[in-house]
Design a protein around this nucleic acid. Structure first.
Lengths: 191, 191
DNA sequence: CCGACATTTCAGGAATTTCTGAAATATCGG
DNA sequence: CCGATATTTCAGAAATTCCTGAAATGTCGG
């Protein structure tokens, strides 16, 4: 690996964290490298930069594409595929959330649904189903919220984040304000 | 493994998902088993239920305790340790978020901070640092929001979730309402 | 302190995942 | 269709992670 020290440190870190994030070292490194590269890179350049085999890079790129975290950029008069990461970090966040949900949450949700359909054959099973129902309810609430929020454009999402927990204070205030307003002006529908 | 079919299906699913969640099969299965069990279980019972070795259960329980996902419950007149999962699913969510942040996000944040302190030695490094700064900014915003929200008690958290993206509609409304209210009543400080 | 039982540690074997090099396949200009 | 170049596939090697059984350690009542 022969990279500027700053880049190398970043790449190595992503490689190490890879295992905690459920991706392997090479995939983490490729992602990090593409993320900080000023221009799209082709497979050969990645091989040179990371010192791993060509086939490993090929598989890594495939996986990153499956995650929508590497996108091929065609460069005129060059047969080789070049890759970048999406440049808007908020978009990356969305992508990550979406893919993780698909892989880590949805399967469980569907198993839970299935198990909740069955009729329990014992007190033990009845209790287990009760617990599964709690888990199902929580996950469903979370995914509903997520489906809702993921449609927000970046600017609104950012302001929502910035607001943080103060939003609940706003909720309290809202009720009071509506009380005051009632019968005076039209504050709009408020659920 | 000799469990009621419903429980067995649940346990097996968690075992399979384990690898996607960054835990191993046994740990996933132990968690699932404890989660649906009507009473705390001791290690021997887990061994019998799952058909894995005693030592494996011991290590699995240790890991779950490190995650705060298994808690020892002392049972009077019984020397053996018994374990349950926290029973409030919202609490489990908090715990999970906290632990994942600690393991998956914080290390990256600190590496980014460190790399951003250094002065770039080339245009390439300068660009890399720029990208790192974007990532750092995003992560910092997310963790600030998270630190903010995690303090909410369950009820408020739930209502925040239920509100979903409509909260931004509320933000728009807020400004209009405050405009209308101005000079008529005290709507309270609103940032 | 002893004996009975409970738990943890850990070396090494088993299972799984990752990585490589070689071969196969694909794509292009001519 | 050919030769040059780019990419993918895949069997097995390498590395890593997981799991077990045996031994060590801890803890209790007496």
């Amino acid at each position: 690996m022969n990279l500027p020290p700053l880049v190398q440190a970043f790449v190595l870190h992503f490689g190490e964290m890879g295992s905690r994030w459920g991706i392997n070292r090479t995939v983490g490194q490729i992602y990090a490298l593409l993320y900080v590269a000023p221009d799209p890179l082709n497979a050969e350049q990645i091989v040179d930069a990371l010192g791993v085999s060509r086939s490993n890079v090929s598989m890594g790129l495939k996986e990153l594409q499956a995650w929508n975290l590497a996108i091929p950029k065609h460069i005129p008069n060059d047969r080789r595929d070049h890759f970048t990461t999406p440049d808007d970090v908020w978009q990356i966040l969305r992508t990550l959330a979406e893919e993780r949900k698909k892989r880590e949450v949805d399967p469980t949700l569907s198993v839970l649904r299935e198990l909740l359909m069955q009729s329990p054959g014992s007190a033990e099973e009845r209790h287990a189903q009760q617990r599964m129902a709690e888990m199902h309810g929580l996950i469903e609430q979370l995914t509903t919220w997520y489906d809702d929020v993921k449609r927000l454009e970046t600017e609104r999402l950012a302001s929502l984040l910035a607001l943080g927990a103060r939003v609940t204070r706003l909720l309290d205030t809202k009720d009071k304000v509506i009380g005051l307003m009632r019968g005076r002006a039209s504050p709009g529908k408020e659920g």
